[in-house]
Design a binder for these strands. Sequence first.
DNA 1: TTGTTCTCTGAACGCCGTGTAGAAAATGAA
DNA 2: TTCATTTTCTACACGGCGTTCAGAGAACAA
Lengths: 231, 231
Amino acid sequence: MSRRDRLRAQTSAEIKAIALKLMADGGPDAISLRAIAREMGMTAGAIYSYFATRDDLITTLIGDVYTSAVDAAEAARDAVPETEPGGRILAWAQAMREWALANPEGFRLIYGDPVPGYRPPDGGPGSQAEARACAGLVGLVAAAWPAVQARRSGDRAYDWADFDPDLVAHVREDFPDLPPAGIAMTLRVWGRMHGLMALEIYGHLRTLIHDPADVYRDEMHDLIASLGLTT
Amino acid sequence: MSRRDRLRAQTSAEIKAIALKLMADGGPDAISLRAIAREMGMTAGAIYSYFATRDDLITTLIGDVYTSAVDAAEAARDAVPETEPGGRILAWAQAMREWALANPEGFRLIYGDPVPGYRPPDGGPGSQAEARACAGLVGLVAAAWPAVQARRSGDRAYDWADFDPDLVAHVREDFPDLPPAGIAMTLRVWGRMHGLMALEIYGHLRTLIHDPADVYRDEMHDLIASLGLTT
DNA sequence: TTGTTCTCTGAACGCCGTGTAGAAAATGAA
DNA sequence: TTCATTTTCTACACGGCGTTCAGAGAACAA
Protein backbone atom coordinates (compact mmCIF):
# COMPACT_ATOMS: atom_id res chain seq x y z
CA MET A 1 0.00 0.00 0.00
CA SER A 2 1.68 3.10 -1.25
CA ARG A 3 1.69 6.48 0.32
CA ARG A 4 -0.88 7.64 -2.21
CA ASP A 5 -3.19 4.76 -1.30
CA ARG A 6 -2.85 5.60 2.36
CA LEU A 7 -3.71 9.22 1.80
CA ARG A 8 -6.60 8.20 -0.36
CA ALA A 9 -8.03 5.85 2.26
CA GLN A 10 -7.58 8.52 4.89
CA THR A 11 -9.39 11.16 2.89
CA SER A 12 -12.13 8.73 2.03
CA ALA A 13 -12.59 7.93 5.72
CA GLU A 14 -12.66 11.63 6.54
CA ILE A 15 -15.40 12.22 4.00
CA LYS A 16 -17.50 9.46 5.51
CA ALA A 17 -16.83 10.65 9.06
CA ILE A 18 -17.87 14.19 8.25
CA ALA A 19 -20.93 12.92 6.43
CA LEU A 20 -21.94 10.96 9.52
CA LYS A 21 -21.35 14.00 11.71
CA LEU A 22 -23.46 16.18 9.44
CA MET A 23 -26.17 13.54 9.50
CA ALA A 24 -26.09 13.32 13.29
CA ASP A 25 -26.38 17.10 13.52
CA GLY A 26 -28.93 17.90 10.89
CA GLY A 27 -30.47 14.65 9.72
CA PRO A 28 -29.79 12.74 6.54
CA ASP A 29 -30.74 15.76 4.45
CA ALA A 30 -27.78 17.64 5.83
CA ILE A 31 -25.45 15.31 3.95
CA SER A 32 -24.44 17.44 1.00
CA LEU A 33 -21.23 17.21 -0.97
CA ARG A 34 -20.79 20.94 -0.67
CA ALA A 35 -21.18 20.87 3.11
CA ILE A 36 -18.71 18.01 3.41
CA ALA A 37 -16.23 19.79 1.17
CA ARG A 38 -16.69 23.04 3.11
CA GLU A 39 -15.91 21.21 6.34
CA MET A 40 -12.78 19.75 4.77
CA GLY A 41 -11.59 22.95 3.15
CA MET A 42 -12.11 21.57 -0.31
CA THR A 43 -14.47 22.10 -3.18
CA ALA A 44 -17.40 19.81 -3.85
CA GLY A 45 -15.96 18.55 -7.11
CA ALA A 46 -12.99 17.03 -5.31
CA ILE A 47 -15.21 14.42 -3.67
CA TYR A 48 -15.86 12.94 -7.08
CA SER A 49 -12.31 11.57 -6.94
CA TYR A 50 -13.50 9.31 -4.11
CA PHE A 51 -17.15 8.62 -4.82
CA ALA A 52 -18.60 8.54 -8.30
CA THR A 53 -21.76 10.21 -7.13
CA ARG A 54 -23.54 11.33 -4.01
CA ASP A 55 -25.64 8.19 -4.00
CA ASP A 56 -22.46 6.12 -3.98
CA LEU A 57 -21.40 7.89 -0.82
CA ILE A 58 -24.82 7.34 0.72
CA THR A 59 -24.69 3.67 -0.18
CA THR A 60 -21.34 3.31 1.56
CA LEU A 61 -22.65 5.15 4.60
CA ILE A 62 -25.68 2.88 4.77
CA GLY A 63 -23.37 -0.11 4.77
CA ASP A 64 -21.26 1.33 7.60
CA VAL A 65 -24.23 2.36 9.69
CA TYR A 66 -26.13 -0.86 9.18
CA THR A 67 -23.04 -2.84 10.09
CA SER A 68 -22.65 -0.92 13.33
CA ALA A 69 -26.27 -1.66 14.20
CA VAL A 70 -25.92 -5.36 13.50
CA ASP A 71 -22.66 -5.45 15.46
CA ALA A 72 -24.49 -4.07 18.47
CA ALA A 73 -27.34 -6.53 18.12
CA GLU A 74 -25.03 -9.52 17.73
CA ALA A 75 -22.94 -8.49 20.71
CA ALA A 76 -26.03 -8.17 22.89
CA ARG A 77 -27.34 -11.51 21.69
CA ASP A 78 -24.03 -13.26 22.34
CA ALA A 79 -23.96 -11.95 25.90
CA VAL A 80 -26.85 -14.29 26.64
CA PRO A 81 -26.14 -18.02 26.68
CA GLU A 82 -27.52 -20.14 23.88
CA THR A 83 -29.53 -22.08 26.42
CA GLU A 84 -31.87 -19.10 26.68
CA PRO A 85 -33.24 -18.54 23.18
CA GLY A 86 -35.94 -16.23 24.50
CA GLY A 87 -33.39 -14.12 26.30
CA ARG A 88 -31.29 -13.90 23.18
CA ILE A 89 -34.24 -12.64 21.16
CA LEU A 90 -35.01 -10.06 23.83
CA ALA A 91 -31.38 -8.97 23.95
CA TRP A 92 -31.29 -8.54 20.18
CA ALA A 93 -34.53 -6.56 20.19
CA GLN A 94 -33.51 -4.28 23.03
CA ALA A 95 -30.09 -3.68 21.52
CA MET A 96 -31.67 -2.73 18.23
CA ARG A 97 -34.05 -0.29 19.87
CA GLU A 98 -31.32 1.26 21.96
CA TRP A 99 -29.13 1.60 18.90
CA ALA A 100 -32.00 3.21 17.03
CA LEU A 101 -32.65 5.68 19.85
CA ALA A 102 -28.96 6.54 20.03
CA ASN A 103 -28.71 6.85 16.23
CA PRO A 104 -32.12 7.97 15.02
CA GLU A 105 -30.68 9.47 11.88
CA GLY A 106 -28.88 6.22 11.18
CA PHE A 107 -32.15 4.38 11.56
CA ARG A 108 -33.78 6.72 9.07
CA LEU A 109 -30.85 6.22 6.74
CA ILE A 110 -31.29 2.44 6.79
CA TYR A 111 -35.03 1.99 6.99
CA GLY A 112 -36.45 5.20 5.58
CA ASP A 113 -35.84 7.33 2.56
CA PRO A 114 -32.18 8.02 3.22
CA VAL A 115 -31.89 11.20 1.23
CA PRO A 116 -33.91 12.93 -1.47
CA GLY A 117 -33.91 10.97 -4.67
CA TYR A 118 -31.71 8.16 -3.42
CA ARG A 119 -32.52 4.69 -4.66
CA PRO A 120 -30.59 1.78 -3.21
CA PRO A 121 -28.57 -0.29 -5.66
CA ASP A 122 -28.89 -4.06 -5.67
CA GLY A 123 -26.16 -5.90 -3.85
CA GLY A 124 -24.58 -2.88 -2.24
CA PRO A 125 -22.91 -2.97 1.17
CA GLY A 126 -26.27 -2.15 2.69
CA SER A 127 -27.65 -5.39 1.33
CA GLN A 128 -24.77 -7.28 2.87
CA ALA A 129 -25.41 -5.82 6.30
CA GLU A 130 -29.11 -6.50 5.88
CA ALA A 131 -28.27 -10.09 5.01
CA ARG A 132 -26.26 -10.30 8.22
CA ALA A 133 -29.18 -8.93 10.22
CA CYS A 134 -31.51 -11.35 8.51
CA ALA A 135 -29.17 -14.25 9.21
CA GLY A 136 -29.02 -13.27 12.86
CA LEU A 137 -32.79 -13.27 13.10
CA VAL A 138 -33.06 -16.59 11.30
CA GLY A 139 -30.65 -18.02 13.84
CA LEU A 140 -32.77 -16.74 16.70
CA VAL A 141 -35.89 -18.24 15.19
CA ALA A 142 -34.12 -21.50 14.37
CA ALA A 143 -33.03 -21.86 17.98
CA ALA A 144 -36.64 -21.45 18.99
CA TRP A 145 -38.08 -23.60 16.25
CA PRO A 146 -38.91 -26.72 18.26
CA ALA A 147 -41.00 -24.59 20.60
CA VAL A 148 -42.53 -22.65 17.72
CA GLN A 149 -43.50 -25.75 15.81
CA ALA A 150 -45.47 -27.04 18.78
CA ARG A 151 -47.81 -24.03 18.72
CA ARG A 152 -48.04 -23.11 15.08
CA SER A 153 -51.42 -23.58 13.47
CA GLY A 154 -53.42 -22.07 10.69
CA ASP A 155 -50.46 -20.50 8.94
CA ARG A 156 -50.17 -20.78 5.24
CA ALA A 157 -48.02 -23.63 3.93
CA TYR A 158 -44.78 -22.11 2.72
CA ASP A 159 -42.40 -23.42 0.14
CA TRP A 160 -38.74 -22.75 -0.49
CA ALA A 161 -39.73 -21.25 -3.82
CA ASP A 162 -41.58 -18.47 -2.02
CA PHE A 163 -38.28 -16.96 -0.92
CA ASP A 164 -35.15 -15.54 -2.44
CA PRO A 165 -32.88 -18.38 -3.66
CA ASP A 166 -29.76 -16.89 -2.06
CA LEU A 167 -31.48 -16.58 1.29
CA VAL A 168 -32.80 -20.12 1.01
CA ALA A 169 -29.35 -21.47 0.19
CA HIS A 170 -27.80 -19.82 3.23
CA VAL A 171 -30.58 -20.91 5.53
CA ARG A 172 -30.58 -24.52 4.38
CA GLU A 173 -26.84 -24.68 4.87
CA ASP A 174 -26.74 -23.07 8.30
CA PHE A 175 -30.01 -24.42 9.68
CA PRO A 176 -30.84 -27.66 7.87
CA ASP A 177 -33.69 -28.45 10.23
CA LEU A 178 -35.55 -25.20 9.62
CA PRO A 179 -38.46 -25.55 7.20
CA PRO A 180 -39.64 -22.78 4.83
CA ALA A 181 -42.14 -21.65 7.41
CA GLY A 182 -39.17 -20.74 9.57
CA ILE A 183 -38.19 -17.99 7.15
CA ALA A 184 -41.74 -16.68 7.11
CA MET A 185 -41.69 -16.63 10.89
CA THR A 186 -38.36 -14.80 10.84
CA LEU A 187 -39.84 -12.06 8.67
CA ARG A 188 -42.76 -11.78 11.06
CA VAL A 189 -40.39 -11.46 14.00
CA TRP A 190 -38.46 -8.81 12.15
CA GLY A 191 -41.63 -6.92 11.38
CA ARG A 192 -42.75 -7.10 14.96
CA MET A 193 -39.46 -5.68 16.21
CA HIS A 194 -39.50 -3.04 13.53
CA GLY A 195 -43.04 -1.72 13.92
CA LEU A 196 -42.96 0.05 17.26
CA MET A 197 -39.35 1.07 16.68
CA ALA A 198 -40.18 2.79 13.41
CA LEU A 199 -43.23 4.52 14.86
CA GLU A 200 -41.15 5.75 17.77
CA ILE A 201 -38.19 6.97 15.74
CA TYR A 202 -40.43 8.81 13.29
CA GLY A 203 -42.20 10.53 16.16
CA HIS A 204 -45.62 8.94 15.90
CA LEU A 205 -45.62 7.73 19.50
CA ARG A 206 -44.04 10.81 21.00
CA THR A 207 -47.34 12.65 21.24
CA LEU A 208 -49.24 9.65 22.59
CA ILE A 209 -47.09 8.10 25.27
CA HIS A 210 -44.33 9.53 27.39
CA ASP A 211 -42.03 6.52 27.32
CA PRO A 212 -42.57 3.78 24.74
CA ALA A 213 -39.92 1.56 26.36
CA ASP A 214 -42.41 -0.38 28.46
CA VAL A 215 -44.76 -0.94 25.56
CA TYR A 216 -41.88 -2.22 23.45
CA ARG A 217 -40.74 -4.52 26.23
CA ASP A 218 -44.25 -5.91 26.71
CA GLU A 219 -44.52 -6.46 22.99
CA MET A 220 -41.21 -8.30 22.86
CA HIS A 221 -42.19 -10.45 25.82
CA ASP A 222 -45.42 -11.33 24.05
CA LEU A 223 -43.46 -12.09 20.90
CA ILE A 224 -41.19 -14.45 22.80
CA ALA A 225 -44.14 -16.08 24.52
CA SER A 226 -45.90 -16.48 21.18
CA LEU A 227 -42.85 -18.41 20.00
CA GLY A 228 -43.35 -20.77 22.92
CA LEU A 229 -40.33 -19.47 24.79
CA THR A 230 -39.85 -17.93 28.20
CA THR A 231 -37.61 -15.19 29.50
CA MET B 1 -68.74 32.35 -0.76
CA SER B 2 -67.82 34.88 -3.38
CA ARG B 3 -66.50 34.22 -6.82
CA ARG B 4 -63.01 35.08 -5.63
CA ASP B 5 -63.25 32.52 -2.85
CA ARG B 6 -64.40 29.89 -5.29
CA LEU B 7 -61.53 30.56 -7.64
CA ARG B 8 -59.15 30.50 -4.75
CA ALA B 9 -60.41 27.15 -3.51
CA GLN B 10 -60.24 25.78 -7.02
CA THR B 11 -56.65 26.89 -7.56
CA SER B 12 -55.69 25.59 -4.14
CA ALA B 13 -57.22 22.22 -4.99
CA GLU B 14 -55.38 22.17 -8.30
CA ILE B 15 -52.08 22.82 -6.54
CA LYS B 16 -52.69 19.92 -4.20
CA ALA B 17 -53.84 17.64 -7.00
CA ILE B 18 -50.73 18.36 -9.06
CA ALA B 19 -48.55 17.89 -6.01
CA LEU B 20 -50.11 14.47 -5.42
CA LYS B 21 -49.62 13.57 -9.08
CA LEU B 22 -45.98 14.62 -8.95
CA MET B 23 -45.56 12.59 -5.78
CA ALA B 24 -47.16 9.52 -7.34
CA ASP B 25 -44.87 9.83 -10.35
CA GLY B 26 -41.54 10.66 -8.78
CA GLY B 27 -41.85 10.18 -5.06
CA PRO B 28 -42.28 12.79 -2.35
CA ASP B 29 -39.08 14.52 -3.42
CA ALA B 30 -40.64 15.39 -6.74
CA ILE B 31 -42.97 17.82 -4.98
CA SER B 32 -41.38 21.16 -5.74
CA LEU B 33 -43.10 24.48 -5.97
CA ARG B 34 -41.38 25.13 -9.26
CA ALA B 35 -42.56 21.84 -10.74
CA ILE B 36 -46.12 22.48 -9.61
CA ALA B 37 -46.06 25.99 -11.03
CA ARG B 38 -44.57 24.73 -14.29
CA GLU B 39 -47.40 22.22 -14.58
CA MET B 40 -49.93 25.00 -13.98
CA GLY B 41 -48.34 27.53 -16.28
CA MET B 42 -47.44 29.80 -13.41
CA THR B 43 -44.35 30.89 -11.59
CA ALA B 44 -43.31 29.38 -8.28
CA GLY B 45 -43.89 32.59 -6.39
CA ALA B 46 -47.60 32.53 -7.17
CA ILE B 47 -48.08 29.51 -4.97
CA TYR B 48 -47.17 31.64 -1.98
CA SER B 49 -50.57 33.27 -2.33
CA TYR B 50 -52.08 29.92 -1.36
CA PHE B 51 -49.55 28.34 0.96
CA ALA B 52 -47.23 30.36 3.14
CA THR B 53 -44.39 27.93 2.55
CA ARG B 54 -43.64 24.60 0.98
CA ASP B 55 -43.92 22.89 4.36
CA ASP B 56 -47.43 24.29 4.69
CA LEU B 57 -48.37 22.61 1.45
CA ILE B 58 -46.77 19.35 2.58
CA THR B 59 -48.64 19.54 5.86
CA THR B 60 -51.93 19.94 4.02
CA LEU B 61 -51.09 17.06 1.71
CA ILE B 62 -50.25 14.83 4.67
CA GLY B 63 -53.63 15.61 6.13
CA ASP B 64 -55.43 14.77 2.89
CA VAL B 65 -53.49 11.59 2.28
CA TYR B 66 -53.75 10.37 5.85
CA THR B 67 -57.47 11.06 5.81
CA SER B 68 -57.92 9.00 2.66
CA ALA B 69 -56.06 6.11 4.30
CA VAL B 70 -58.17 6.24 7.44
CA ASP B 71 -61.33 6.52 5.36
CA ALA B 72 -60.39 3.30 3.60
CA ALA B 73 -59.61 1.54 6.86
CA GLU B 74 -62.83 2.66 8.53
CA ALA B 75 -64.91 1.64 5.53
CA ALA B 76 -63.36 -1.83 5.51
CA ARG B 77 -63.87 -2.17 9.24
CA ASP B 78 -67.51 -1.11 9.05
CA ALA B 79 -68.19 -3.68 6.36
CA VAL B 80 -67.72 -6.32 9.06
CA PRO B 81 -70.41 -6.58 11.75
CA GLU B 82 -69.54 -5.49 15.26
CA THR B 83 -70.18 -8.99 16.45
CA GLU B 84 -66.89 -10.04 14.87
CA PRO B 85 -64.22 -7.92 16.54
CA GLY B 86 -61.47 -10.14 15.15
CA GLY B 87 -62.79 -9.78 11.65
CA ARG B 88 -62.97 -6.03 12.04
CA ILE B 89 -59.33 -5.90 13.10
CA LEU B 90 -58.33 -8.03 10.14
CA ALA B 91 -60.37 -5.86 7.77
CA TRP B 92 -58.71 -2.71 9.10
CA ALA B 93 -55.25 -4.23 8.77
CA GLN B 94 -55.79 -5.54 5.27
CA ALA B 95 -57.33 -2.27 4.12
CA MET B 96 -54.35 -0.37 5.48
CA ARG B 97 -51.88 -2.63 3.72
CA GLU B 98 -53.77 -2.47 0.45
CA TRP B 99 -53.96 1.28 0.70
CA ALA B 100 -50.23 1.42 1.38
CA LEU B 101 -49.45 -0.79 -1.60
CA ALA B 102 -51.68 1.33 -3.82
CA ASN B 103 -50.20 4.58 -2.46
CA PRO B 104 -46.63 3.80 -1.48
CA GLU B 105 -45.59 7.42 -1.82
CA GLY B 106 -48.48 8.43 0.38
CA PHE B 107 -47.31 5.95 2.98
CA ARG B 108 -43.83 7.43 2.83
CA LEU B 109 -45.34 10.88 3.14
CA ILE B 110 -47.19 9.93 6.32
CA TYR B 111 -44.83 7.58 8.06
CA GLY B 112 -41.42 8.48 6.67
CA ASP B 113 -39.47 11.63 6.12
CA PRO B 114 -41.96 13.33 3.84
CA VAL B 115 -39.59 15.66 2.11
CA PRO B 116 -36.12 17.07 2.77
CA GLY B 117 -36.06 19.26 5.81
CA TYR B 118 -39.74 18.98 6.61
CA ARG B 119 -40.71 18.88 10.25
CA PRO B 120 -44.34 18.28 11.13
CA PRO B 121 -46.08 21.05 13.08
CA ASP B 122 -48.00 20.21 16.23
CA GLY B 123 -51.73 19.95 15.82
CA GLY B 124 -51.73 20.10 12.04
CA PRO B 125 -54.21 18.24 9.87
CA GLY B 126 -51.84 15.29 9.89
CA SER B 127 -52.18 15.07 13.64
CA GLN B 128 -55.95 15.12 13.31
CA ALA B 129 -55.98 12.26 10.84
CA GLU B 130 -53.53 10.37 13.03
CA ALA B 131 -55.85 10.92 15.97
CA ARG B 132 -58.67 9.45 13.91
CA ALA B 133 -56.55 6.42 13.05
CA CYS B 134 -55.58 6.06 16.68
CA ALA B 135 -59.21 6.34 17.77
CA GLY B 136 -60.18 3.66 15.28
CA LEU B 137 -57.57 1.32 16.66
CA VAL B 138 -58.58 2.04 20.24
CA GLY B 139 -62.12 1.15 19.29
CA LEU B 140 -60.98 -2.15 17.82
CA VAL B 141 -59.00 -2.97 20.93
CA ALA B 142 -61.82 -1.83 23.21
CA ALA B 143 -64.23 -4.18 21.45
CA ALA B 144 -61.80 -6.99 22.08
CA TRP B 145 -60.91 -5.98 25.61
CA PRO B 146 -62.91 -8.60 27.53
CA ALA B 147 -61.10 -11.31 25.60
CA VAL B 148 -57.75 -9.54 25.93
CA GLN B 149 -58.08 -9.08 29.66
CA ALA B 150 -58.56 -12.81 30.13
CA ARG B 151 -55.14 -13.60 28.67
CA ARG B 152 -53.00 -10.64 29.64
CA SER B 153 -50.21 -11.40 32.05
CA GLY B 154 -46.81 -10.05 32.86
CA ASP B 155 -47.38 -6.68 31.27
CA ARG B 156 -46.29 -3.59 33.06
CA ALA B 157 -48.96 -1.80 35.08
CA TYR B 158 -49.93 1.29 33.13
CA ASP B 159 -51.37 4.50 34.42
CA TRP B 160 -53.38 7.25 32.71
CA ALA B 161 -50.49 9.58 33.41
CA ASP B 162 -48.29 7.55 31.09
CA PHE B 163 -50.22 8.81 28.09
CA ASP B 164 -51.07 12.05 26.41
CA PRO B 165 -53.85 13.85 28.33
CA ASP B 166 -55.88 14.60 25.19
CA LEU B 167 -55.76 10.99 24.11
CA VAL B 168 -56.74 9.87 27.59
CA ALA B 169 -59.67 12.26 27.68
CA HIS B 170 -61.04 10.99 24.39
CA VAL B 171 -60.55 7.36 25.32
CA ARG B 172 -62.18 7.68 28.72
CA GLU B 173 -65.15 9.41 27.16
CA ASP B 174 -65.66 6.98 24.29
CA PHE B 175 -64.62 3.76 26.02
CA PRO B 176 -65.17 4.22 29.76
CA ASP B 177 -64.48 0.55 30.48
CA LEU B 178 -61.05 0.53 28.87
CA PRO B 179 -58.20 0.75 31.39
CA PRO B 180 -54.84 2.43 30.70
CA ALA B 181 -53.40 -0.89 29.62
CA GLY B 182 -55.89 -0.77 26.74
CA ILE B 183 -54.07 2.20 25.26
CA ALA B 184 -50.75 0.43 25.61
CA MET B 185 -52.23 -2.58 23.85
CA THR B 186 -53.54 -0.32 21.08
CA LEU B 187 -50.08 1.04 20.46
CA ARG B 188 -48.74 -2.50 20.31
CA VAL B 189 -51.42 -3.46 17.80
CA TRP B 190 -50.55 -0.41 15.74
CA GLY B 191 -46.88 -1.28 15.82
CA ARG B 192 -47.59 -4.83 14.80
CA MET B 193 -49.64 -3.72 11.81
CA HIS B 194 -47.05 -1.13 10.91
CA GLY B 195 -43.90 -3.25 11.06
CA LEU B 196 -44.26 -5.59 8.12
CA MET B 197 -46.03 -2.88 6.14
CA ALA B 198 -43.17 -0.43 6.57
CA LEU B 199 -40.56 -3.05 5.72
CA GLU B 200 -42.49 -3.99 2.60
CA ILE B 201 -43.14 -0.45 1.38
CA TYR B 202 -39.52 0.53 1.89
CA GLY B 203 -38.39 -2.48 -0.10
CA HIS B 204 -36.73 -4.51 2.64
CA LEU B 205 -38.83 -7.60 1.99
CA ARG B 206 -38.81 -7.38 -1.80
CA THR B 207 -35.48 -9.15 -2.09
CA LEU B 208 -36.34 -11.82 0.48
CA ILE B 209 -39.83 -13.03 -0.34
CA HIS B 210 -41.84 -12.90 -3.51
CA ASP B 211 -45.18 -12.02 -1.99
CA PRO B 212 -45.34 -10.72 1.60
CA ALA B 213 -49.15 -10.88 1.61
CA ASP B 214 -49.29 -14.32 3.20
CA VAL B 215 -46.79 -13.43 5.87
CA TYR B 216 -48.75 -10.31 6.71
CA ARG B 217 -51.99 -12.29 6.87
CA ASP B 218 -50.45 -14.91 9.13
CA GLU B 219 -49.10 -12.18 11.36
CA MET B 220 -52.49 -10.49 11.61
CA HIS B 221 -54.19 -13.78 12.37
CA ASP B 222 -51.66 -14.36 15.14
CA LEU B 223 -52.28 -10.84 16.39
CA ILE B 224 -56.00 -11.47 16.55
CA ALA B 225 -55.49 -14.82 18.24
CA SER B 226 -53.13 -13.22 20.75
CA LEU B 227 -55.97 -10.84 21.64
CA GLY B 228 -58.12 -13.88 22.43
CA LEU B 229 -60.30 -13.44 19.35
CA THR B 230 -61.09 -15.62 16.40
CA THR B 231 -61.64 -14.95 12.75
C1' DT C 1 14.23 14.14 -16.21
C1' DT C 2 10.30 12.81 -18.41
C1' DG C 3 5.74 11.14 -18.90
C1' DT C 4 1.76 9.54 -16.53
C1' DT C 5 -1.63 9.44 -13.09
C1' DC C 6 -4.12 11.34 -9.46
C1' DT C 7 -6.14 15.29 -6.84
C1' DC C 8 -8.02 19.47 -6.61
C1' DT C 9 -9.80 24.22 -8.17
C1' DG C 10 -12.90 27.25 -10.34
C1' DA C 11 -16.34 28.11 -13.24
C1' DA C 12 -20.47 26.74 -15.29
C1' DC C 13 -25.32 24.46 -15.86
C1' DG C 14 -29.70 23.70 -14.23
C1' DC C 15 -32.29 22.47 -10.37
C1' DC C 16 -34.40 24.01 -5.75
C1' DG C 17 -37.12 27.26 -1.82
C1' DT C 18 -37.72 31.75 -0.68
C1' DG C 19 -38.18 36.51 -0.65
C1' DT C 20 -39.44 41.39 -2.87
C1' DA C 21 -41.12 44.92 -6.03
C1' DG C 22 -44.31 45.97 -8.98
C1' DA C 23 -47.70 44.88 -12.77
C1' DA C 24 -52.23 43.22 -13.65
C1' DA C 25 -56.63 41.80 -12.57
C1' DA C 26 -60.70 41.33 -9.85
C1' DT C 27 -63.63 43.42 -6.49
C1' DG C 28 -66.66 46.56 -4.00
C1' DA C 29 -68.07 51.40 -2.99
C1' DA C 30 -69.09 56.00 -4.58
C1' DT D 1 -68.92 54.26 -14.52
C1' DT D 2 -65.04 55.46 -11.90
C1' DC D 3 -61.79 54.83 -8.44
C1' DA D 4 -59.37 52.81 -4.53
C1' DT D 5 -58.47 48.47 -2.45
C1' DT D 6 -57.31 43.78 -2.29
C1' DT D 7 -55.64 39.75 -4.37
C1' DT D 8 -52.97 37.30 -7.70
C1' DC D 9 -49.28 36.79 -10.46
C1' DT D 10 -44.61 37.86 -12.89
C1' DA D 11 -39.80 39.01 -12.91
C1' DC D 12 -35.77 38.96 -10.74
C1' DA D 13 -32.45 38.07 -7.16
C1' DC D 14 -30.18 35.29 -3.43
C1' DG D 15 -28.03 31.33 -1.79
C1' DG D 16 -28.29 26.42 -1.70
C1' DC D 17 -27.78 21.92 -4.13
C1' DG D 18 -25.48 17.79 -7.48
C1' DT D 19 -22.86 17.37 -11.34
C1' DT D 20 -19.56 18.18 -15.15
C1' DC D 21 -15.35 19.79 -17.23
C1' DA D 22 -10.93 22.05 -18.44
C1' DG D 23 -6.87 22.80 -16.50
C1' DA D 24 -3.29 23.54 -12.71
C1' DG D 25 -0.31 21.25 -9.73
C1' DA D 26 1.50 17.50 -7.07
C1' DA D 27 2.92 12.73 -6.62
C1' DC D 28 4.50 8.88 -8.74
C1' DA D 29 7.10 5.36 -11.95
C1' DA D 30 10.56 4.97 -15.60
